[in-house]
């Protein structure tokens, strides 16, 4: 394997839950920016960031919309941090059947944060409108191996499938899948 290296920019939003004041300007500007035409409408329910907040428990967690999840988790955990009890869901980015976050209110279709890639500024707008720096933007470069890594991943996955179902069954399934495509 030759190991072609590639530089990838990882966009990071750092969330400081101690600094959040619960103003929800992030939700406001996200929904406004993603409206069509831009900024024409405003509706936090369409936002790809939501502040999960329980003011009397002093819990304020800005969470970004991530992947769509077909099913909710079978069991859920609780985290106790600095004496405060957080539901696992308070940190979860999934648009999931267990809650109404990160779904278009009209259609129910999942929403996902796109880091405001259509905006000329590097910093996503939620970060720009967060005046208390609960949200800050960081970029870092990472060198990643191309292709080979992925193949290895596939191989590991397949090996476990072969272990479980036998090589023949797996080959059958792969053959059937390739016909469908």
């Amino acid at each position: 394997m030759t190991g072609n290296k590639k530089t990838k920019i990882i966009k990071n939003i750092k969330i400081d839950i101690n600094k959040c004041n619960g103003c929800r300007a992030c939700e406001m500007i996200c929904s406004a920016f993603h409206a069509a035409p831009q900024y024409s409408g405003n509706n936090p329910a369409r936002s790809r960031i939501r502040v999960i907040h329980y003011p009397l428990k002093d819990i304020y967690v800005p969470v970004y919309a991530g992947e769509y999840a077909e099913a909710e988790c079978m069991g859920r955990d609780k985290y106790v941090i600095d004496g405060k009890e957080y539901d696992e869901c308070a940190f979860c980015r999934a648009s999931c059947p267990s809650r109404d976050l990160f779904k278009e209110p009209d259609s129910g279709l999942p929403l996902k944060c796109d880091m405001c890639e259509d905006h000329p500024d590097k910093e996503p707008l939620c970060v720009q409108w967060c005046y208390v720096d609960a949200l800050t933007y960081e970029e870092r470069e990472e060198e990643v191996d191309e292709e080979e890594v992925k193949l290895e991943d596939v191989e590991i996955g397949l090996e476990s499938m072969v272990d479980k179902y036998g090589l023949e069954q797996v080959m059958d399934v792969v053959a059937r899948m390739s016909q469908k495509e």
Partner: peptide
């Protein structure tokens, strides 16, 4: 509420 509030001249 989960509806939109619109503004006349967004930009």
């Amino acid at each position: 509420g989960t509806k939109d509030i619109n503004v006349a001249r967004p930009a």
